[in-house]
């Protein structure tokens, strides 16, 4: 999926994450993470981000995350939303997911 513009999803409310996805002219994935639990969970969050981007076939993007203590599934949801919005409202491939 190609990131065509900048898009945002999520909020700064507690248990949520505010995520902005933007095109990366320099290619590749850049993750800018701000989290109060960065020390304990920073690596987990980055791993989730990379995984979700891979699932969505995103190769070039700048992802800015402000985490407010979001669960992994919330990060996933917000990032998927932001990516689909940034890809000009492409729809999610429900069929292609593993539903376990």
């Amino acid at each position: 999926m190609e990131i065509k513009g900048s898009a945002m999803a999520g909020t700064l409310e507690s248990s949520d994450a505010s995520i902005v996805v933007a095109p990366n002219a320099d290619k590749g994935i850049v993750i800018d993470l701000i989290s109060s639990v960065e020390k304990q969970f920073g690596e987990d969050i980055r791993r989730t981000v990379k995984q979700v981007l891979k699932e969505l076939d995103v190769e070039d993007a700048i992802v800015k995350i402000q985490d407010r203590g979001a669960l992994d599934c919330v990060i996933r949801a917000r990032l998927q939303t932001a990516v689909l919005r940034a890809a000009n409202g492409k729809s999610f491939d429900w069929e292609g997911q593993r539903h376990v």
């Binding site: 999803a9 999520g10 669960l71 992994d72 599934c73 919330v74 996933r76 949801a77 917000r78 998927q80 939303t81 689909l84 919005r85 409202g89 999610f92 539903h99 376990v100």
Partner: peptide, 15 residues
């Protein structure tokens, strides 16, 4: 609507 759908979807999948 898109955000809520994905949030509930992921929550039901994982929680």
């Amino acid at each position: 609507k898109d955000a809520a759908r994905l949030l509930v979807y992921n929550a039901l999948k994982r929680l």
